[in-house]
Design a protein around this nucleic acid. Structure first.
Lengths: 68, 68
DNA sequence: TCAAAATGTAATATATATGTTGCAAAAAGT
DNA sequence: ACTTTTTGCAACATATATATTACATTTTGA
């Protein structure tokens, strides 16, 4: 399933996928695939994305409705 | 760095590494390596561990002091 | 409209998470 | 002390996250 929270947080910061990719040190494709829900990213990448977007893991990668 | 929060949450539930591994569907070694900080687990595995231990991603895998 | 930027997608290559097996060491229970 | 359970660790195999390159499509701005 797509990660809309990530996409929204990125757009709120006015960053393109490529901008965010450079900040966190991965390729643009990796960001795109995470947003479209086709990748299962590593924890450290999730954390780096959260820091770049000033969010927490729960904000971007935890779905309370699904998980509880 | 070791993940003490994970280890404590597991012990609080009275689960061995092997117990938790079976619940989340990975090997015992994988759980041990995550607890000892030698692995960078996938997001989906982190989520499965959280569900098994009744915690959230922030509870077990987010360090506010380091990340903020 | 047109051009530029942003995003989607695909093929191939590489790094690393994870599995499997086995054995040693440590911890816990009796 | 002894046994059992738990944990650590190592070597090798496999699956998959991620990189790279390239091109197509969509979106945005002038």
């Amino acid at each position: 399933m797509k990660n809309m929270k990530l996409k929204l947080a990125r757009v709120e910061k006015d960053l393109s996928q490529e901008d965010l990719a450079k900040i966190v040190g991965v390729s643009r494709q990796t960001i795109g695939l995470i947003e479209s829900g086709k990748y299962n990213p590593s924890l450290s990448l999730c954390i780096n994305i959260c820091i770049a977007l000033s969010r927490t893991l729960n904000d971007l990668f935890w779905d309370a409705e699904i998980n509880n």
